[in-house]
Structure formats: C-alpha cells, structure tokens
C-alpha cells in the first residue's frame, strides 16, 4: 500500500464532494436540525406554553423507571427541568449516531456507486493504483468528513444546550463523559460500519440512487435497533457506551474484511 496514492484518491474525491450539493445538502442540513432546531424546541416550547398534564404524567412514569443513578441526578429538579434534562442528555443521543452513519453512507455511495454511474470508474481503474489503495482512499474520504460533521454537530449542540439551559440549571450540562464517549468512541465505529456496508452494496449496484436506496433499506432497520438501544445504553452510563464501541469495532473488522473481498476491479467493470 502506497499511502500517497490513497491520499491522491482522497484529495480527488474530496474536491468532487465539496462541489456536489446532492451530497453536501443532507450531511449539512440533517445535523443542523438535530443540533439547533430540536433542542431549541425542547427547551423553549414548554416554557412558552404550559406543558399539558398528560405529558407530565407520562414523564413521571418514565422517570420512575430510570436507573437509580440517574434518578439521583434528577433529585431537586422541578418537572420542567427533569423533562429538559432527560430529553437533551439521553433521548437525543441516538440522533448523534444517525449523523455519522448518514454522512458516511451518502459520501461512500457517491464515491463508489456514483463513480460507476458517471462512468468515470473505468479511467480510474486503468491507472496503476491498486485495489487496496483505492479502497483505502475512498473509505477515508467517506470517514473524515463524516467525523468532522459529527464533531462539529457535537460542538454546536453543546453550545446550544448550554446557552439555553445555563440560566435554568446554573451549570453547564455538556460535555459530559457519556457524550464524549458517544461522539469520539461509538460514532466513529458506527460510521465505519456504515462505510463497510455501503462499499459492499455499491460494488453490486449500478448507481448512486440504487446504492442509497439499498443502504436505506439495510441501514434504517439497524438504526432503529440502535435507536432503541442507544438511549438505554446512555442511561446505563459510560461503561455501556464503551462496551458497545468494542462490539462495533468487531463488526467493522468483519465488514471491512468482506468489503475488501468484494471490491475487485474486475467485478466493478464487468457488471452492467
């Protein structure tokens, strides 16, 4: 593996992506929604209108079922504070796994399937760049921007939350250990899994759209499962987040082994 060849592919794809609105739009708009719009709504809306009683009852029930460690964190807060605290710190967390998975799979499908669809792949495959260098460069260009977006989203989210809640709580809620582990441990490994899957799908399909559709069909159910689990995992604390990260590292290794096997230049061109 000649790293400079992989980086050459990386730079080329980076340039292409940075000029492609079809790719840029989703990976910029979705994070903005999660980092600014949703938290602002959660914080500001209950203050404006009085929360309906049914939701208060629901919240009470939910809080009762939380692990003791979290109940301890909540002691001394009023109802409104409890709701905002639980929502912002725990229930929003899974969305921060959607951001890296979505970003990396959008970029990876453009980079692999898109190149096939636009018929640029042939000249690329004719160059003396090896399969490994190509795969690495393209995986990298899917991974790096998605991590930048995730990291940026986290910064923006922390700022939004802290700005809007400092007055209410008298302290900064974010960042905390769970979130740091989520963003810098779990998110990268989940993103890599998304790339691995997309590479495998892209090798088998004709174009960008098809790759996206299949990714959606495959990725969404996985996300749903993650969703269901992630709030719970966050609730169970840093150790659980760490454990899940380890699981995903194993998944990544498996997926990439498979991806390397499937990614054969011969196959990519022979398919129509």
């Amino acid at each position: 593996m000649r790293i400079e060849k992989a980086l050459l592919v990386f730079r080329k794809d980076w340039r292409e992506i940075s000029r492609n609105w079809q790719v840029l739009m989703p990976i910029l708009v979705v994070p903005l929604l999660f980092t600014v719009a949703i938290p602002a709504a959660i914080i500001l809306i209950p203050g404006l209108m009085n929360a309906p009683t049914s939701s208060t009852a629901f919240l009470g029930l939910m809080v009762e079922n939380l692990p003791g460690q979290i109940q301890a964190q909540l002691s001394g807060m009023d109802e409104n504070q409890v709701m905002i605290y639980v929502m912002l710190l725990y229930f929003i967390a899974p969305f921060f796994l959607v951001i890296p998975v979505m970003a990396s799979s959008v970029i990876a499908s453009d980079s692999f399937a898109g190149e096939k669809e636009r018929k640029t792949i042939e000249a690329l495959l004719a160059t003396p760049i090896t399969d490994g260098e190509l795969l690495f460069g393209k995986a990298l260009v899917s991974f790096v921007p998605s991590m930048l977006v995730t990291g940026g989203s986290f910064l923006l989210y922390s700022a939004t939350v802290d700005l809007l809640t400092y007055e209410m709580f008298g302290r900064l809620l974010l960042p905390n250990l769970e979130w740091v582990l989520l963003i810098f441990g779990l998110a990268p490994t989940v993103s890599l899994a998304g790339i691995g899957l997309t590479v495998m799908i892209s090798a088998r399909v004709k174009g960008f759209k098809e790759a996206q559709q299949i990714s959606a069909v495959l990725v969404v159910p996985i996300l749903m499962m993650l969703f269901a689990q992630a709030s719970g995992v966050m609730l169970f604390g840093p150790l659980m987040v760490g454990a899940l990260t380890l699981v995903f590292i194993l998944v990544d290794i498996l997926l990439f082994r498979l991806g390397v096997k499937i990614f054969r230049r011969e196959k990519i061109l022979s398919q129509r």
């Binding site: 080329k12 042939e122 000249a123 690329l124 004719a126």
Partner: peptide, 9 residues
C-alpha cells in the same frame, strides 16, 4: 476508454 471517463466536477 470508449467513454471519455472524466470527472465532470
């Protein structure tokens, strides 16, 4: 190649 195979962007 048969198609020009250039990067349009």
């Amino acid at each position: 190649t048969e198609n020009p195979s250039l990067y349009d962007r």
